[in-house]
Design a protein around this nucleic acid. Sequence first.
DNA 1: ATCCATATGCTTAGCATGAGCATAAGCACT
DNA 2: AGTGCTTATGCTCATGCTAAGCATATGGAT
Lengths: 314, 314
Amino acid sequence: MRDTPGATQQSATERHAISADLIAVLVAAPNGNPVVLTIKEAAALPSGPFELGHRSLQSGLRNWVEQQTGHPLGYIEQLYTFADRDRGSDGPAGRVISISYLGLTRVEPAHGTPPGSWRGWYEFFPWEDHRTGAPNIIQELIVPRLRQWADTAEQQDKRQNRLRRAGSAFGFDGRPWNEELVLQRYELLFEAGLVEEAARAKDIGDAPAMPGKPMVGDHRRILATGIARLRTKIKYRPVVFELMPPSFTLLQLQRAVEALAGLLVHKQNFRRLIEQQDLVEETGEMSSDTGGRPAKLFRFRHAVLDEHAVAGTK
Amino acid sequence: MRDTPGATQQSATERHAISADLIAVLVAAPNGNPVVLTIKEAAALPSGPFELGHRSLQSGLRNWVEQQTGHPLGYIEQLYTFADRDRGSDGPAGRVISISYLGLTRVEPAHGTPPGSWRGWYEFFPWEDHRTGAPNIIQELIVPRLRQWADTAEQQDKRQNRLRRAGSAFGFDGRPWNEELVLQRYELLFEAGLVEEAARAKDIGDAPAMPGKPMVGDHRRILATGIARLRTKIKYRPVVFELMPPSFTLLQLQRAVEALAGLLVHKQNFRRLIEQQDLVEETGEMSSDTGGRPAKLFRFRHAVLDEHAVAGTK
DNA sequence: ATCCATATGCTTAGCATGAGCATAAGCACT
DNA sequence: AGTGCTTATGCTCATGCTAAGCATATGGAT
């Protein structure tokens, strides 16, 4: 940075050996199924070079996505910017800066398949779906492997530290499961050499054998960042509605939230929360295709966005 | 992005007409005074080109800061990446991508002045300091100006919308003050043409006359982003401790939190919160230079970071 | 008519939060 | 020593939110 004693004065050509990429974590939730847009047989997130012509990063991304999916992007948020060496993405031309975004949209089957496919995001993180209780692989695979990994540390305190981190991330040793720690969990598995990407990066010959589809480069890490961000966000901002059709039942809304959080919620409390915050209003119609008593249809009250600092769900 | 119909195939040189800058919002809080590191007579945040040699953005920033301030950077967090055209920072060489960071540190007067100066951050945002009640300028200057601005909108609903936004941002018309809305407030003032930067950007001849020191480019906006982030963060992560000396009294800690939040907090409740969360432990020493009854000295319990998903203060 | 599934209203216990009362323990005066 | 000022520290109470569950309503299917 300026005034840095050790800083070399770079020549113009050196300084410009940089290019920028956009990477998108595009999320939808058609009937309670959390999905993400992928390319290359679900091995990568959609990405591409940042075009100089664009007015801004955001508008570049928005244009591209709307063209591809044929549906407006409801919500965009920047996730993180990566520029590490050793990310494997530096081309021969120099350092690549990757700017990742989280985007929410509705899937519109009518518009044909985008050049890529929507994949359930728990394909990539099977340990993250606790809607039907904690997945077996946690107790059967992950916990023992992490204990093993903790044991391989030399010093006592390091072993304890690893164990604590593992316990708090995956909710064992009496700790509760915290659905927001998606990134910590992935990074822990990575550090322990339990995901394929780790073996790839460190040239370890470990047999990972851990369920969960790997991705190119650090894409799975970026996806984890996006999921974590979304799980946090829905609690204090009404962003779920970006995933919903114009009108919906409260159960459909609940299923969407549960899909994202990977947890079930208490139905009555969920409704109370939504209604007391005036997040929705009745359309007057009913939906009878729910299999039980017909449910009122609701729509999102866009007005709330201006009204007060709005909380989210849960 | 890839597969974009309208995407031009850029030549290598075109693609590389990009350079990257780091911009830092470096915060400290010596005896309950919130300060930020500035350069150029407090008109700019420290920044400089991203050096290709660095392993990562984070490490580049960390090295630089530690060299400059002679003090380790406790906490770093990425704020936002800007690459808009019209940011005024695109040089002749092409588009500049600016990656901004928030960093927390302790000020160490012994190490001499860094090439820049620490400035109280309320010099830039006088309306943000509510520690001694709401500043007069809000009722006397800001509210009337914003009402005026709202009135200039043509349509009725637009007027109402402006009024609602202003009311919720600055806490009038019966709304509570929300200290987290730092960025919204700055952007509102900008949009209403009430800060100098706005006049600069839009070539308006408005007399701003609004207190609060302007900055170069969008640096004040970045600073607002940093303050907002920090005000949110202290509520759910124990980051204040990065600003504290190794041992401190609970009142000193409270003053630091109040400095950041721009609000006073209830002393007894603050202590209860800190202690019940086991965020600190007694050192055994007492401090008698407090002017009243001597206070116990505490230190931060670093162990909590591993223990559970730790909440912050307030 | 009965069962099943969902919708919807209401109650209760526990916990966190905001606010205030009361007491303790130093210092600086007189 | 006594008074007053300042800060530290302990405790209580009212309120509100949250988790959890009970109970009833209402449609379809058998």
